[in-house]
Amino acid sequence: MTDRITMLDVARRDAQDLHQKISENIANIERTTDADFKIVSDKAHALGERLKADAMTQNEKVKGFMLNAAEKLKAAPQQAKDNLATGAARLKQANLTLLDGSHAAAQSISHAVAELRGQATAASPAPAN
């Protein structure tokens, strides 16, 4: 149980870092390049793949949250790329799309963390009086 919580804590931190990095890109949009976008986009996709694989080791409820997060992270880069092709303010729009995906993923992972923490609490013996 501890290993599974640790693994999720790491994934949650990665999603939070990703969100921060994307919001920094947006804050500095005039200096943000396509290469910067590709870096965060690839990170989002990789985290999504990792969550999808790790989800298979979890029980159904936790798995549901993790797969939901994975889906958001994997879909956002593709949607963002679609925005890239549209032209005006393209890079900002693409980063905003990625921001939405990372935000939703971070929250879904935190729900998975909460679920596992709750299960750990329920499984631990009650303190002696």
């Binding site: 999603a15 549901g64 939901n68 935000h103 971070a106 929250q107 879904s108 935190s110």
Partner: peptide
């Protein structure tokens, strides 16, 4: 299903 997130959750920082 616990997987739905209302729009206002978007405005709560995840860190």
């Amino acid at each position: 299903d616990g997987l739905r997130y209302p729009y206002y959750n978007t405005y709560l920082y995840p860190y």
